[in-house]
């Protein structure tokens, strides 16, 4: 797919595996009454942690640490943009390694396989190919909402921001951001300690052959899809916007800031130290990765 695009050979490309595994059903987002949503967002004093290249295991652990700290009131509600320092496959909490990944191919291609704390599907990540962020909020922000409504709520500002970039985007329950040009991204949530973690990955550009060499995408997963070619279902944002990745991320955070307020922040040394301990004790262990072999 790189032929003729003018990208340098070996350019970093990435994709969202879920984008391949799930086609967005054309369900209207406005199945929910959004009238109270802005007030829920504005009731909090939001912090922004910008993305820096980060090891995949540390990304997993930071999500847990920041969720618990927001739950305990030790950190204000936070939007964290992710950075990556290498290729990675991020498995959902309940996925089986063997069913999802060709581990030999992953090792050959320098792809680190990790497991996150939220459910959902595998993501195939290359550092410049994905746009990922996490929202950490007290569970009260979604009080009275069903789980499906809370998914739509947490990604509603992104859908609005994408529309401002000219992407005809909408939310497709349960957990997809999709568009007229194809699926854009997928979200997952974890809840613990009185806080919600909602994280979303969007495809910026995809290396489908590399992704398919590492991920196993079985026929059953595609059984309710009308299309057999994985590539057709995804609408990576580079292709849809012709904007640099950093420009899109900047627009997303600007939109959040203008809508709900956002104060620049960073992870504290203490938070990083706690996350590094969790990498050693849990996320980096075989017991965690092979929880479901």
């Amino acid at each position: 797919m790189s032929a003729g695009t003018g990208r340098p050979l070996g350019a970093e490309v990435a994709g969202v595996a879920e984008a391949v595994a799930a086609v967005a059903a054309p369900v209207a987002t406005d199945a929910y009454d959004r009238s109270g949503w802005a007030a829920r967002w504005r009731a909090h004093d939001w912090r922004l942690i910008p993305g820096e290249p980060t090891a995949p295991l540390l990304n997993m652990a930071l999500d847990e640490v920041l969720t618990l700290r927001v739950g305990r009131g030790e950190r204000p509600p936070t939007l964290r943009v992710w950075g990556w320092d290498r290729r990675s496959v991020v498995l959902g909490r309940f996925q089986s390694v063997r069913n999802e990944v060709d581990m030999a191919a992953a090792a050959r291609e320098g792809v680190q396989v990790v497991r996150r704390i939220s459910g959902g599907g595998a993501m195939f990540i290359e550092p410049e190919g994905a746009i990922t962020w996490s929202i950490f909020a007290p569970e009260a922000i979604v009080e009275g909402m069903s789980f499906p409504e809370s998914y739509a709520f947490f990604d509603s500002w992104v859908v609005d921001a994408l529309r401002e970039l000219g992407v005809d985007a909408w939310y497709a329950p349960l957990n997809d951001i999709t568009s007229a040009g194809g699926k854009v991204g997928g979200a997952a949530q974890a809840r613990r300690g009185g806080a919600v973690l909602h994280h979303t990955t969007m495809a910026y550009q995809m290396n489908v052959p590399l992704m398919l060499s590492v991920l196993r995408i079985g026929q059953e997963k595609l059984s309710d899809k009308g299309v057999t070619s994985a590539e057709k279902r995804v609408g990576p944002l580079r292709q849809q916007t012709e904007l640099p990745r950093d420009t899109i991320i900047g627009h997303l955070t600007d939109h959040f800031r203008a809508s709900y307020g956002l104060t620049d922040d960073a992870v504290t040394p203490d938070e990083v130290a706690e996350a590094e301990r969790l990498v050693r004790d849990r996320f980096g262990t075989d017991e965690w990765l092979y929880f479901l072999p």
């Binding site: 879920e18 595994a21 959902g92 909490r93 309940f94 996925q95 089986s96 069913n99 704390i117 939220s118 459910g119 959902g120 599907g121 595998a122 789980f147 349960l174 957990n175 997952a188 949530q189 974890a190 809840r191 613990r192 479901l292 072999p293």
Partner: peptide
């Protein structure tokens, strides 16, 4: 062993 890309809350219910 039950696995997949579903969501289940809380984790322990798995």
């Amino acid at each position: 062993r039950v696995s997949g890309d579903f969501f289940l809350y809380p984790d322990e219910a798995h």
